[in-house]
Design a protein around this nucleic acid. Structure first.
Lengths: 211, 211
DNA sequence: ACCTGAACACCGTTCAAGT
DNA sequence: ACCTGAACACCGTTCAAGT
C-alpha cells in the first residue's frame, strides 16, 4: 500500500508553507515539518530529496497562486501590471517566502500559468519573442527587488530617519549632510505608491506601444 | 589588557567575508568563524551580539567597497550609473553576499559614502529631496533584484530553455506554447546587457533632466 | 515503495567560571 | 573587559532495518 501515512508531495509542501508563514525560514526545518505532520523526520525524504527541494516546492505553490487577467482584450501593459500586482500581493501574504521566490523560478505547469499569460499578451500584441524575454527578465528583477526591500523594511531604520542607531544625528549631519536631508523623505515613502511608480517607468519603457 | 587575542570587530568581519566567499552562507557559522580565527566559539560574541550581527557587519564591509565617482561636473544620471555598476561589480565578486545586502542596509559611515555621493549629485543638480529619495529607493530595489536573478542564474534552467526538468518539451509546447517560444530567448540574454538596459529605463525615468 | 529509530557531524547560544 | 569549556536544545542527512 503506497502512502501509508496518507501524505502526498503536495500536502507536505502545503504544511511547509504553513510553518514558513508561522515560524519563518529558520523555523521550517525538516524535523519540525515531520513533527507537524506526525511522521518521523526521515519520512519527509520520501517526497523531497532534501530541504532545498522542500523550499522549491513551497515556491511552486506560491507561483500557482498568482492570478493573471483572462480578458484577451487587455493589452500587454495592463496584463503585465495586473500580474505584477498579484505577485506582490501573494508575497505580502507570505513575506518569509520572498527569499525562496528569489531563488527558485517557476517550474511546474501551475506555477508557470501566469508566465504563460504574460507572454501570450505580449506575443498576441505582436511583440517579438526576444523583446518579450527582456521585458519578463526586467519585471522579475523588479518584483524580487521591491519585495525584498518591502519585507525587510529596508528603508525604515535608515540613518537620519532613525538616528537611534550607531551614528547620532550631529555626526551624520557633519559627514553626510545629504543623507540627513534625504533620509526622512526616504522612510516616509509609501510601499504601494513606490511600487506603482517604478512599475510604470518599467512598463512604459518595456512595452513597445503602451496603449 | 583588552583584546588579548588581537582581534577586532573589523578583523572578525573580514574573516567572515573570507569564509562566506569560500563556503557560502551556510558555511559561515559562528563556530567555523571562531575555528578559523583560532579562538573559542564564544569569543566571537565579544564583538558581535549574534550571528545576524556578523552578517550585517559583512554587508557593511561590502558597502564600503562601492566606488562613487568624485568628479563634481558629472551629472546625476552619470553618477548614479557609475555607482550602480560598482555595486554590481562588488556583488559579482561576492555572490554569496547578495542575500545579506538585500537584508541589511548601509549603516556605517564608510558604508554610507556611496549613498551620500549619489544623493549629493541629485541635490546639487537641483533635484528636491523627495524625488531623490524615490529615485534611491527604486535603484536599490533594482540592484537587489538584478543581483538575485544573476547570482541564482534564475533564467538558466527556465523551462523550454532546459527541457531536462520535470516537464518535457512536448508537454510544454502543448500547455504553454508561448513559454516554449520565449524561453530560449530568455536563457540567451546577456547579464550585463540586460542590467544596462533596465538601468537606462529607470534612470531616464527617475532623473528629471537626464543631461 | 514507504516508513522508522539510531547515529553522525554539526548548529547558535546560555551559563558559570576563569583572567 | 575579554576569553573559555561545558552544556542545552536543536539541525540535515546517512544508514540499516523494518513493513
Amino acid at each position: 500500500m503506497p502512502h501509508r501515512s496518507g501524505l502526498t508531495e503536495r500536502a507536505v509542501a502545503e504544511r511547509a508553507l504553513d510553518i514558513l508563514d508561522a515560524e519563518g525560514l529558520e523555523g521550517l526545518s525538516v524535523r519540525a515539518l515531520a513533527r507537524s505532520l506526525g511522521v518521523a523526520p526521515m519520512s519527509i525524504y520520501t517526497y523531497f530529496a532534501d530541504r532545498d527541494a522542500i523550499l522549491d516546492g513551497v515556491a511552486q505553490l506560491l507561483y500557482a497562486q498568482v492570478e493573471a487577467p483572462t480578458d484577451p482584450r487587455l493589452g500587454p501593459a495592463d496584463t503585465v501590471r495586473a500580474i505584477m500586482r498579484s505577485v506582490r500581493q501573494v508575497l505580502h501574504c507570505h513575506p518569509h517566502a520572498v527569499p525562496l521566490v528569489a531563488t527558485y523560478p517557476p517550474r511546474t505547469l501551475d506555477a508557470l500559468a501566469f508566465v504563460e499569460s504574460g507572454y501570450r499578451s505580449f506575443i498576441n500584441a505582436g511583440v517579438d519573442p526576444e523583446t518579450t524575454a527582456r521585458a519578463y527578465r526586467a519585471l522579475v528583477a523588479y518584483s524580487i527587488g521591491t519585495a525584498e526591500v518591502e519585507i525587510n523594511r529596508y528603508f525604515d531604520d535608515h540613518p537620519a530617519a532613525q538616528p537611534a542607531g550607531s551614528l547620532d544625528a550631529p555626526t551624520l549631519e557633519r559627514h553626510t549632510p545629504n543623507i540627513s536631508l534625504v533620509g526622512p523623505h526616504l522612510s516616509a515613502l509609501d510601499d504601494a505608491e513606490e511600487f506603482e511608480y517604478g512599475l510604470s517607468l518599467l512598463i512604459d519603457g518595456l512595452v513597445p506601444s503602451s496603449a
